[in-house]
């Protein structure tokens, strides 16, 4: 049996962590883009479109991320779409992230007083002008903190990609555990690395919350 030093374990974990970071980044960026699109759709107030966004949000918020990942991975290949573990992870994390962000942002937009819309309207601003010059500048300030806060959920969500065989931090931990039989040590390292990723994000979110809370 090969001997693993602490450094060997850490080195392998750090290598796998790159994939966790990359997966998180891609999922967050594409999730944000989809959420932006869905938010725009929701803001048109078209009843059919609004209904669609609502169902979308309920669907992906109301089912476990793990099931979504299974469905993307096994489900898609069963109906004839070959998809890699990497592709399935990105797809399901994007759906998951966007569903939550749409809902978070809805809150940020809807908490703005109705008077802001009315004042804009009586000044002659169109719907889009109101959105661009009055609503979004205020809503984005409010949305910053909870959005960054949610990114922690995305990072932790990537761990589930391990069950469809994608080698990221968690999967690497499981593999190293099988090789070393030192579960406590290995998973303590894994946890520590997740913490190192997530803690700065929550700190940042808290900072933003304070900053923009005072500014309002």
């Amino acid at each position: 049996m090969i001997e693993f030093s602490n450094w060997d374990i850490l080195r392998n974990l750090l290598f796998a962590m790159q994939w966790t970071i990359l997966l998180s980044l891609i999922a967050f960026i594409s999730g944000t883009s989809v959420a932006l699109g869905l938010t725009a759709v929701r803001l048109t107030r078209n009843p059919v479109m609004t209904r669609f966004v609502k169902v979308y949000v309920e669907l992906f918020q109301g089912t476990p991320l793990l099931m979504q990942m299974f469905l993307c991975f096994f489900g898609l290949s069963m109906i004839g779409y070959e998809i890699s573990a990497w592709g399935a992870a990105i797809l399901s994390l994007t759906l998951f992230t966007s569903a939550f962000l749409v809902e978070i942002w809805r809150g940020c937009i809807d908490t703005l007083p109705k008077g802001q819309w009315e004042a804009s309207r009586v000044l002659g601003l169109s719907f889009l002008q109101t959105l661009r010059h009055v609503i979004l500048p205020q809503a984005t300030r409010v949305a910053f903190a909870p959005t960054v806060g949610f990114s922690v959920q995305v990072v932790k969500g990537t761990a589930l990609a391990s069950v469809i065989g994608f080698v990221e931090l968690t999967k690497a931990g499981t593999m190293l555990n099988n090789a070393t039989f030192e579960p406590f040590k290995v998973f303590a390292f894994v946890a520590l690395l997740y913490f190192a990723l997530c803690y700065p994000l929550s700190l940042c979110s808290k900072y933003l919350e304070k900053k923009y809370h005072v500014a309002r």
Binding site: P113, E118, A119, V134
Partner: peptide, 8 residues
């Protein structure tokens, strides 16, 4: 309006 509705 009663409550001004300025853009903050």
């Amino acid at each position: 309006f009663q409550n001004f509705n300025l853009f903050p």
